[in-house]
C-alpha cells in the first residue's frame, strides 16, 4: 500500500513533467535561456494555487511546476498513510510523532519559512 502510493505519485509527476515539458518547448523553445543569475521565479510559478490555475490554463512552465507539486506531495501522502497505519494499530506515540512530521512539512509547503 505504501509502496504503491510512492510509485503512483512518481508516475503521475513524470507524466505531467513530460507533458508540461513538451508544451513549454513548443511555447518557449526558441527563446534564449540563461540561468547564470538568480532572480527568483515570478509569483505565478511559486504559489501552489497560482501554479494549478496556470497549469489548467495550458501554460507549459506552470504545468512543469505542477509536476513538482505532485512530486512534493508524494512523500507527504506517504507520511499520511503511515499516520493511518499507526492509528489503526493504536500506536499513540507514533501517531503523535507522525503528526509532528506533518506539521513541520506543512510549515515548509505553506511558505511559513521565508
Amino acid at each position: 500500500m505504501l509502496s504503491r502510493v510512492l510509485s503512483l505519485g512518481v508516475y503521475a509527476a513524470a507524466g505531467m513533467a513530460v507533458l508540461g515539458g513538451v508544451v513549454y518547448l513548443v511555447q518557449h523553445g526558441g527563446e534564449t535561456v540563461s540561468y547564470t543569475r538568480f532572480d527568483g521565479e515570478p509569483g505565478g510559478l511559486t504559489n501552489p494555487a497560482a501554479i494549478v490555475s496556470g497549469a489548467l490554463g495550458g501554460d507549459g512552465r506552470a504545468m512543469v511546476q505542477a509536476s513538482v507539486l505532485i512530486l512534493i506531495a508524494t512523500p507527504i501522502i506517504r507520511v499520511l498513510a503511515s499516520l493511518v497505519l499507526f492509528m489503526v494499530t493504536r500506536d499513540r506515540l507514533y501517531v503523535a510523532v507522525t503528526l509532528l512530521v506533518l506539521v513541520l512539512l506543512c510549515l515548509g509547503l505553506w511558505g511559513a519559512i521565508e
Partner: peptide
C-alpha cells in the same frame, strides 16, 4: 518553490 528557486526549464 515559494522562494522562486525552482526554475521549470531546469527542474
Amino acid at each position: 518553490l515559494h522562494r522562486g528557486q525552482i526554475e521549470p526549464g531546469l527542474a
